[in-house]
Nucleic acid binder design. Structure first.
Lengths: 243, 243
DNA sequence: CCAAAAGTGTTAACAGTACACCCATGG
DNA sequence: CCATGGGTGTACTGTTAACACTTTTGG
């Protein structure tokens, strides 16, 4: 909390919170990875009403406190907490960014719920470690391309997924998030697979290599020791992203 | 509200909302215009505690209902309502888009308040019509460049302004929002001024004209009737954006 | 005639696209 | 030997950046 002048302190001591109605507050997470050159998203099957049995994004309530002093948990902290709970991965091992806040009346039939949606990226070497958390009996990876067409998700989660994919695609072209979807040391081929999987279209890897060389020349990427050996073809150089 | 199967209806009838603490919910608006080739933002001076006397973004509480049926006002509707109230302009006359949701504990010293921030664009021909609304005794335009450096805004509003400007700049380069900051019919010079004001740097108008010609060739922009006469130099062709 | 903004044209550097080609490994 | 993916190079094309020049108004 910020430093306040004396008259503000006096005001606060006398302050009584108004009687406005308040919404419940949740976070929902669109968690992506790329496995086998295919974009995947982590979904759970709901075990309780409403939308029992339907697929849904992992998420949960934000711990909100009462009163001036005890205001509870930051929304961002809640998102990190849920991400760790749902994936079983340690906090800070994944990229996480706010996406959009969904607040239409009636989006949850139980009561007024406002949900802050986030999207997260899990490196493919961590993705197989993802296990079901406490409140997610059956979290697993679904192919965005193959498993999600025409499937009804719970609440307005399909809208969230579509928006997340849109954001993921445009961010890929202007920022460095592609490096969040490969292992810490990676080959040009692996990085290229991420572009093809996320954008959903093929591109010439030889031209991709030229652009990659520019990143190296600009110092954004450097050689990592060793080579990657997949057994059936020429070993590939290994690279590392410098933040 | 969506159609629900019978077992979901039965569940809802029996449903009792939990006893989670809930946050107050507000919307805050970063409202921009470009006047005299200068980016301006609409701010109010707070008349009440906390941060009494400080400059702040216009905003207000979202009308949230109680119960299943009466869930109140959409967040987006609240943003549109506040935008109309604060500017005095009719709804739908300005561009409005969600920016980011601020939900740190302690960001409002009174209580837990989560604020959904939006940014809005007002055409320069409408900007002079903006008058103080009911709850905004003194809303007026401030130059982002000249009036805001080193000035402390209320709450975390400075963070909101910085993020809004950042978003405005990157959107300018990839979308068509520039057309929201000129009159419905405009000259190339006026559009160029918007780019220079928002990006905060000069660019060659002759090269800008070439890019503009491509937009015309692509059918995004068409000639509007007449010429613009500013009195002291050659009259300029007038153009119109086709949505 | 001069100042000021509108509008056109030229050039060189650079980035994107579509290719052909060689290299290192396993079978 | 072939298949597979790794890695280099070249030719063409379109976009961007820097700058010279003409046009139409007011003073």
């Amino acid at each position: 909390m910020q430093e306040l002048p004396n008259d503000e302190k006096a005001f606060l001591d006398a302050y009584q919170p108004g009687t406005y109605a308040r919404p419940a507050l949740t976070v929902d997470l669109a968690i992506f990875t790329v496995l086998d050159a295919d974009l995947k998203i982590l979904l759970i099957q709901r075990g309780v009403h409403p939308y029992k049995g339907k697929l849904a994004l992992p998420g949960g309530f934000v711990n909100v406190g009462d009163g001036h002093r005890e205001q509870g948990e930051d929304i961002e902290a809640a998102a990190h907490r849920e991400l760790a709970e749902e994936t079983g991965l340690p906090q800070g091992s994944c990229f996480l960014q706010q996406l959009y806040t969904f607040g239409k009346a009636g989006r949850d039939p139980r009561m007024r719920v406002v949900s802050v949606a986030w999207y997260a990226l899990v490196r493919p070497d961590l993705a197989p470690l993802v296990v079901a958390g406490d409140d997610a009996a059956s979290a697993s990876w679904y192919s965005v391309e193959r498993d999600l067409q025409g499937v009804a998700l719970a609440f307005d989660h399909h809208q969230m997924v579509d928006l997340a994919i849109q954001r993921l695609r445009s961010s890929l072209l202007v920022s460095s998030i592609a490096f969040e979807l490969v292992p810490q040391s990676f080959t040009v081929g692996e990085l290229h697979d991420v572009y093809e999987a996320v954008l959903g279209q093929c591109s010439d890897i030889r031209n991709f290599r030229r652009r990659f060389k520019r990143l190296v020349a600009d110092g954004l990427v450097e050689r990592a020791p060793g080579k990657r050996f997949l057994g059936k073809s020429r070993p590939a150089d290994v690279w590392r992203f410098r933040r």
